[in-house]
Write a protein that binds this DNA or RNA. Structure first.
Lengths: 254, 254
DNA sequence: GACCCGCCCTGATCTGGATCAACCGGACAC
DNA sequence: GTGTCCGGTTGATCCAGATCAGGGCGGGTC
């Protein structure tokens, strides 16, 4: 059962959470982007403050509940979305329903860039998220007017390509323990350390999604985590937070 | 045992094969690019004939024997290379020696683009090949002078990213039969059909390399090919040429 | 010619992770 | 409260593909 992106995106707009930027009536459209927490990231980081009117008039923020599809594989690629907060999973589906998560998107990431006229993957929120929509034609016009945007897009795509190749290495060569160790290390690099300074990893997505990202069943993931814990490499603080006790041990295992 | 790229590339220049474009003494540098068989592909396709002097003065063709490394993972990324003919394998290596081939490059492909200052993968010829070298600084200058080159680079990187995500799906979800079927179909799309019109696939690389690309051992690859052959989906004409007897059966298996 | 070497193929066996099944505990509805 | 559902965990078993082992063949050198 598929829905059009616009339909879902509009229907699933969440009641405004306190954390999301809410334009006040007196606020100008320029001000909306000026106050954006993701302003320095994503595509927008390539623009100076003077260019903000170009942005504000063409982009529109959306607050989304969790489990909301934003773009659907195979549908016409009409817009791109910059993640402002929250987390999304990007995945591809085989005809028989098997799914492979190709990545998780967080603040600053851009989703929905398509080579052809249709999206190559599905993107769906895993937590309540805020994304900023820009139509494809607006993006094209922005690129023409501001060449730096194209450069930024190239840089971001190159980084993603490199990450995808790392994932190919992981899926093609590594064992279950190596995959999980690599994943936890990568997460811990993007996550703030705990109050006492030890690194940690934040896993808001369900275990089955982590498995679908690493090419493992959730049962296997659970066993590996317990193995790492009993080896003293990690401690499971809560269901979605892991403390890295021994980064060197994880490095060695990855 | 690693060698510097320049050392190997210079040492391994092959005796001029008859098929490679050979600049004659009277030929101008502009003429060299004008006669290039890969002119319309790769980066150069973004340039018009009038821009050829810019290309010819900054790029240099190299004839390479098979099994010659062109760029080495971890070495300083000083140049990019456009493949003019032949085939290269791109791979990443784990500390213990396991290798994952992330792709094969053929005419028109650009290799050596790096996010940071070092190459993220090794590229090595699998057949005798001709590549065209351009320094990173020359590429940067070319992009500044010709914005279309940056656009072309973005398009090529996006296509590669999409291909990498397909490969992630393959490695994360698919069975051995599905992987080989997908691979043969992808190859047959890039390969000319046989004289009688039936599609075919050309596999100049050793079986162990195909395996390293698909995340399979060569023994498994051999068994799967036999299985597909006895199922009537393919016929092995020679060691490096396969006739696709039943594309629909392969599609179904992929 | 004989020999060697690299690549490929085939058979036998092994194993890491998948699959199947059961259970637990927290969130939610009623 | 009770029932249900869903995500996670654990144990038992299975199997696809890895690993181990041997043999064939074509191209190269001497």
């Amino acid at each position: 059962m598929t829905f059009s992106v616009a339909t879902i995106a509009d229907a699933a707009v969440a009641p405004p959470p306190m954390t999301a930027p809410q334009p006040r009536a007196a606020e100008t459209v320029t001000g909306r982007c000026a106050g954006c927490s993701a302003r320095s990231k994503g595509l927008c980081g390539a623009l100076t403050a003077g260019d903000l009117p170009d942005l504000s008039t063409t982009s529109r923020p959306l607050d989304l509940l969790s489990a909301t599809p934003v773009v659907m594989e195979g549908e016409e690629a009409l817009a791109v979305f910059t993640v402002m907060s929250g987390m999304l999973k990007l995945y591809k589906t085989l005809p028989d329903g098997r799914q492979q998560i190709t990545g998780f998107a967080t603040a600053g990431d851009v989703i929905g860039l398509a080579v052809g006229s249709v999206y190559a993957y599905t993107a769906e929120t895993v937590t309540a998220s805020t994304v900023c929509r820009m139509s494809r034609t607006a993006l094209r016009r922005l690129m023409e007017r501001h060449p730096a945007v194209q450069g930024r897009l190239l840089a971001m795509t190159s980084v993603e390509l490199s990450a995808a190749q790392d994932q190919i290495l992981l899926l093609g060569c590594k064992t279950a323990v190596e995959r999980v160790s690599s994943f936890l290390l990568a997460l811990s690099r993007r996550s703030r350390p705990l109050a006492d300074g030890t690194p940690s990893a934040f896993l808001p997505m369900p275990k089955v999604d982590i498995g679908a990202y690493l090419g493992l069943r959730p049962e296997t993931l659970s066993r590996v985590l317990r193995k790492l814990e009993s080896a003293g490499a990690i401690t499971r603080l809560t269901n979605d937070r892991i403390r890295i006790e021994n980064p060197a041990a994880l490095e060695a295992a990855a």
